[in-house]
Amino acid sequence: MATWQLVQYVVTGITVGSIYAIVGLGFTIIYSVTGIINFAQGEFVMLGGMTAFSLIGLGLPIPVALMLAVVLVTLVGVVFNLTAIRPAGRASSITLIIITIGGALFIRAVAGLYWGRDAVALPPFSSGASLSFLGAYIRPQSLWVIGITLVLMVVVYLLLNRTLVGKALKAAAINRRAAALVGIDARMMSLVSFALAAATGAIGGIVIAPISYASYDMGVMLGLKGFVAAAMGGLTGVWGVFLGGLGLGLAESLAAGYISSSYKDAIALIFLFAVLLIRSRRLVAGEEAAA
C-alpha cells in the first residue's frame, strides 16, 4: 500500500469530515439551546448549495451570491422557527423533533419542485491546479473547506462562550424561568439558535457544492452524517462535533479506499448505531440518577 494513497485518503477524509462537522455544528447549536434535534438541518445545507447555485445563475458576482445565499437560508431558519417551532409552545422534545422531520420533508419537496431532480455544481472558490503533497493531490477547494470549517468553529465557539448572547443562549437552556427573570426571552434564544444553525448549515452546503455537487435531496445523507458527527461529539460542544466530524470523515474515506467505496455510507450508519447505543444508555443512566 503506497504512502501517497494513504495521504490521499486522509486528505479526502479531513475534507469530507470538515463538512460533516459543519453540518453537525448546526445540530449541536440547536440541541444545546433548545433540546431539539433538528432533522431539518440537512435541508439548510441543501438550501445553501442550491440557493447559491441559483444566485450565481442570475449573474451575481460569486462572493455576493454566496453571502446572499447564507443570508437567505438564515431567514428560512428564522421563518421555520417562527412558523413550525414557536406555535408548538412548550411541547415535548419528541413532538418538536417530529415537527422538524415534517419541516425537512416539506422543504425537500418544495426544493425538488423548484430546482428539479438534477444535481448541479458550483464553481470552485479559486481556480488553479491541484497541489501535490507527498504524492497525493489536494484540490484547492479542499483547502477552502478545511479553512472555512476551522474559522467557523472558532467563530461559533467564541460566540457561544465569550459573548453575552452566548451566555444567554446557555442560560435559557439551563433554566428557562431563571433566564426570564434576568430578562432573557427563551423563545428569542430558540430563534437565534435556529438562525445560527441555518447560517452554518448554508455555509456547509456552499463549500461542499463545488466538490460533490448539490441537489434537492443532498440534505438527507448529509443531515444524517452531520447528526452522527454531532452525537459523537456529545451534542453540546463545538470541538466535540469537530472531532466527531473528522473521525467520521476519516473512517469513511479509509474504508472506501481500503475496503470498497460501497461501504462508505455503511460506515456512517455503523457509527450512528454505535452512538445511539452508547448515548441512549447514558440517557437512561441520567434519568435514573435524576429519579
Binding site: 444567554a168 424561568r177 433566564a179 432573557i184
Partner: peptide, 24 residues
C-alpha cells in the same frame, strides 16, 4: 424566586453578568 434558580453549570461571575442582561 424560591429555590434560587441558579445557572448551576456557569460561573458565579457569569451568573452576575447575566443579571445585567436586560440592560444590555
Amino acid at each position: 424566586a424560591e429555590g434560587r434558580g441558579m445557572f448551576g453549570s456557569m460561573s458565579v461571575l457569569d451568573n452576575l453578568i447575566l443579571g445585567a442582561y436586560a440592560q444590555h
